[in-house]
Amino acid sequence: MRSPVIGVLALQGDFREHLEMLAGLGVDARNVRTPEQVAACDGLILPGGESTTIGKLMRRYGVDQAIRELHAAGRPIWGTCAGAILLSREVVENDVHNLGLLDARIARNAYGRQTDSFERGLAMAALGAAEFPAVFIRAPRFVSVGPGVEALAAIDDEPVFVRQGNLLASTFHPELTSDPRVHAWLAELARA
């Protein structure tokens, strides 16, 4: 079988870091900015960045609809930080143009401002025994998640990395580390 194509939504944010991580794994990865480019992908990453900015640009160019169709076709999609906000069903007290695919309520900048950003080692059994180095930057928090949403990692029982079928959402940034395990997992899901 041909190797899967992973798209990284490149409207704004740290798409370059995601692309470099995937390229390092030998995955066929490309920046995508138009509905046609999204439709040509086997899997998609919504990067970190400003969710308000990315949401507006998605809507202005019809990329949001293409992402919904990719999801409906069963392709895996992973959102990091801003990406997790965009995937969620409800964003607390905000008018972000979110996709509403993930059964979760999420609050933006919920730990505080930039000086409240932090790093933390996370237990993540789904990816093996080694702790995952998690970087949280002006990070959002999941306020509540639906029954079909599985927590893959948590801080004090509050989920920070969740899965709902082929949707993954992390409130932190694996792309800013040198640990490629989540990226490798997404490529595996896209191959299936």
Binding site: Q12, G13, D14, G49, E50, C81, T115, D116, E119, I137
Partner: peptide, 20 residues
């Protein structure tokens, strides 16, 4: 007195602003 921080967090916010 100020909160602990790492270099990665500081550059991280700059990385999030890319393409903006």
């Amino acid at each position: 007195e100020q909160p602990a921080y790492t270099w990665r967090e500081k550059v991280g916010l700059a990385q999030m602003l890319r393409g903006g």
